[in-house]
Design a protein around this nucleic acid. Structure first.
Length: 197
DNA sequence: AGGATGATTCTCT
DNA sequence: GAGAATCATCCTT
């Protein structure tokens, strides 16, 4: 039996994100991120995520709300987009109740649609295997900070059936100096589109 | 007002 | 594997 075309999948439900950020990071694996710009549709299957929580020294929310991270304290299902190293944007899916300050970083996608535009923007064979790369490929920047990923038509999430536990690998998070050993990075085991081997 | 710091990526070697 | 690029943000004078 074949997997359905991604456009037949239902929208992600807030209940999958509102309860527990680590569970949401696992739940998002296999789900589909869709970006629409006018007539162009781009989409990718989420294959790598990381969880961040307010009691986590590596989290942007650790020191409370600010102008930059305000949307991380928003309602579950919103986007938190930030600029890092003055060069790259990163996309998070906000989780848990509004005011909490938790989110899931989307670290890698498996391209499903819109390869031409992604390729044009990336100028590299590495289209969406990295949080900054996938934002560049999909044209995601701070103008999409706070976007409602459960209701928007230009950036939104589609829910795939949950993966089995043995399809998911947990590791330490990447690129941080604090709490790097917390096993809050999740990948689809063996997937070819991860940010690291 | 000034300095340090990144949830990264690219270009070398 | 090391080093640079690059700048908004945050914290310390």
């Amino acid at each position: 039996m074949r997997s359905p075309h991604f456009l037949d999948l239902p929208r992600m439900d807030a209940r999958d994100l509102a309860e527990n950020t680590v569970a949401a990071a696992r739940r998002l694996l296999g789900c589909v991120l869709v970006r629409r710009e006018g007539d162009v549709l781009m989409a990718g299957r989420i294959v790598e995520t990381e969880a961040y929580r307010p009691d986590d020294p590596a989290s942007h929310s650790f020191r409370g709300p600010s102008a930059r991270n305000a949307s991380m304290f928003g309602a579950p299902g919103r986007a938190y987009v930030y600029l890092i190293y003055g060069l790259n944007h990163c996309l998070n899916v906000v989780t848990e109740a509004a005011g909490t300050g938790s989110a899931v970083l989307i670290r890698a996608l498996e391209p499903l649609s819109g390869h031409d535009l992604m390729q044009e923007r990336r100028k590299s064979p590495h289209l969406t295997n990295g949080p900054g790369r996938l934002c560049q490929a999909l044209g995601i920047d701070r103008t999409l900070d706070g976007e409602d990923l459960l209701g928007s038509d230009r950036l939104y999430l589609l829910a795939a059936p949950p993966l089995s536990d043995d399809a998911i690998l947990a590791t330490g998070r990447i690129g941080i100096t604090k709490a790097a050993d917390w096993p809050w990075r999740f990948v689809i085991a063996g997937n070819a589109h991860l940010s690291r081997k």
